[in-house]
């Protein structure tokens, strides 16, 4: 179906996203920190990126900004995963070029609908 890059440092969350995505038939690429995510995006050019915002090395906002400013990856849609719905993180994320966001705790079936929407386009 689609190649999806998941940038997430928490092992449980990685596994959950991976299994839900695979259940939908998607191919999953993993990165554990922001910088690795930026590199993976450039090397593999996935169809979609799921980006946690609270990441080590390089946080999700900065990683997104770099992906957006790189001509090779600027077109890849990014969905942010954030626990901080209320603190202005969403607005900040949108400013950094994120296309959509999903609040934690993630309801995965809900997230999958969102993924389907982006992958179809």
């Amino acid at each position: 179906m689609a190649r999806i890059l998941v940038v997430e440092d928490d092992a449980d969350n990685q596994e959950l996203v991976t299994r839900f995505l695979k259940r939908q038939g998607h191919e999953v690429l993993l990165a554990r920190d922001g910088l690795t995510g930026v590199v993976a995006a450039e090397e593999d050019v996935p169809d979609l990126i799921l980006m946690d915002l609270g990441l080590p090395v390089l946080d999700g906002w900065e990683a997104s900004r770099r992906i957006r400013s790189n001509a090779a990856t600027a077109h890849i849609p990014i969905i942010a995963l954030t626990a901080h719905a209320l603190s202005g993180d969403v607005a900040k994320a949108l400013e950094h070029g994120i296309d959509d966001y999903e609040l934690k705790p993630v309801v995965y079936q809900h997230l999958m609908k969102k993924v389907a929407k982006f992958v179809k386009n």
Binding site: D12, N13, L16, R19, F20, R23, K104, P105, V106, V107, Y108, Q109
Partner: peptide, 12 residues
């Protein structure tokens, strides 16, 4: 989050 996530995964 993990509990909720895996419960959902178990369900589906």
């Amino acid at each position: 989050n993990a509990i909720l996530g895996f419960a959902e995964l178990l369900e589906v």
